[in-house]
Structures are given as C-alpha cells and as structure tokens.
C-alpha cells in the first residue's frame, strides 16, 4: 500500500463522509445530484460482489463496507427521508443516467479481464465510475450555484482520482507485472472529466469569487 493509494482512499472516503454529514446535519441535499449518488451505489454494489468470498485485507473489507453503507445511505436520505427529500432539486437533476448505464454494461461485456460474471461486473463498475459524476456536473452547470460543500465533494472526488493515477504510476514502476489497462484508461477518462471543474474551482478560489461554471 503506497502513500498515494492510501491518500486516494482517504480523500475518497472523505468525499462521501462529508456529503453524508452535510445531508445528515443540515437535513438538505440541495445542489446534490441523486442520479450521481445512485450511480455510485451501483458502482460499489457491482464492484464489491466479492466482498465475502475474497478476503484481501481487513482494511480492504472495512473500506468496502463503509463505501457501500455511505453511498446507499446517501441515496436513502435523498429519496426516503421526509425532510431531506423535499430539498432535492429534481427539476434540474434530469440527466437520464440509464444513458450511461447501458453503454457501460455493453462495454464491460466486450472489454473485460475474463468473461465471468464477476469480472464483467467489475469492468462495468470501473466504466460506470468513470462517468458517474456526469449528472452532478450537469446539475452544477444548470443551477450555476455551487455551495461550498458540493464544491468540496467534487473536489475531493477529483483529488482521489488524481492520487489514484499517481498510485498506478508508482505501482507500475515498483511492481513487475502490475498492469490494469481497464482501470487505467477508465481512470484517466474520469480524471479528465474533473479537469475543467478543477480549473474553475481553483480559479474561483484564487480570485476569491463565487464559483461560477460557464454556461
């Protein structure tokens, strides 16, 4: 476990925990895309199928449980909680996310490490994670206002992706046959999706102005 990967997992954990705490404390999910949260719940469910059959380490198992629990509770809060659900901006969160799910499923059937159910679901979760942020970015463009917690959420997710790329570079040079093309290509695509958000986030932070995304 190298420092980039640990830092990446921690920022990823931070992004979901900050989001869950925000929703739990202020009982509001304004600015958050339910579609993105649902996609993330599917990503974790599809990726962690081997949770009980394949033990990697205590850390790995605990983190998987935390990610599953937090992503599903965020979806539960946004859909079922009597107060929070009223703050959900469903008129703007209209990205048809099944448009993302189907191509990822087809791609996973075509490109995977082994044509078994678990490997196809794993590849599906990798592809879906790459595009899961899309509805959230669309919502941010639509509503054009980014409250700082939503901004922090996307920022932490972007940071986790950048750290994971550093982790892959480190592992590629230190572990002889560490090659995972599927994760690498999907991970780079995902990180690029954040690139423009990062640019506007850092610019607004530098000029100390409210974060505005271009129309």
């Amino acid at each position: 476990m190298n420092v980039f990967r640990l830092a990446g997992d921690m920022t990823h954990l931070l992004s979901v925990v900050v989001l869950l705490l925000k929703i739990h404390t202020i009982k509001s999910c304004a600015g958050i895309s339910l579609k993105t949260q649902e996609l993330y719940a599917v990503v974790f469910a599809a990726r962690y199928l081997d949770l009980f059959v394949h033990f990697v380490s205590l850390y790995n198992t605990v983190m998987k449980l935390v990610f599953l629990a937090s992503s599903f509770s965020i979806v539960w809060y946004m859909k079922r909680h009597k107060i929070v659900r009223r703050t959900y901006d469903k008129d703007h969160d209209t990205f048809r996310h099944y448009v993302l799910v189907l191509p990822c499923l087809l791609l996973a059937l075509l490109i995977n490490e082994k044509f078994t159910f678990r490997e196809v679901m794993w590849a599906f979760s990798i592809y879906l994670e790459a595009v899961a942020i899309f509805p959230q970015l669309v919502l941010l463009q639509r509503t054009r206002n980014i409250d700082n917690l939503t901004g922090q959420y996307v920022f932490f997710l972007g940071a986790y992706r950048v750290l994971y790329i550093l982790n892959w570079i480190y592992r590629y040079f230190t572990e002889p046959h560490f090659v995972h093309w599927i994760s690498w290509v999907a991970g780079i695509v995902q990180t690029l999706l954040y690139a423009d958000f990062f640019y506007y986030y850092i610019m607004s932070w530098k000029n100390n102005v409210k974060l505005e995304l271009p129309a």
């Binding site: 990967r5 997992d9 990823h12 081997d50 990697v56 380490s57 790995n60 983190m63 998987k64 990610f67 490490e113 082994k114 794993w122 994971y164 982790n167 572990e175 046959h177 560490f178 090659v179 994760s183």
Partner: peptide, 10 residues
Amino acid sequence: AAPDNVKDEL
C-alpha cells in the same frame, strides 16, 4: 505479491 489479476484496490 498477490497474483496479477487480484483486485486489491478499492
């Protein structure tokens, strides 16, 4: 080290 295609990352 774990065999190659073991998914040890989250």
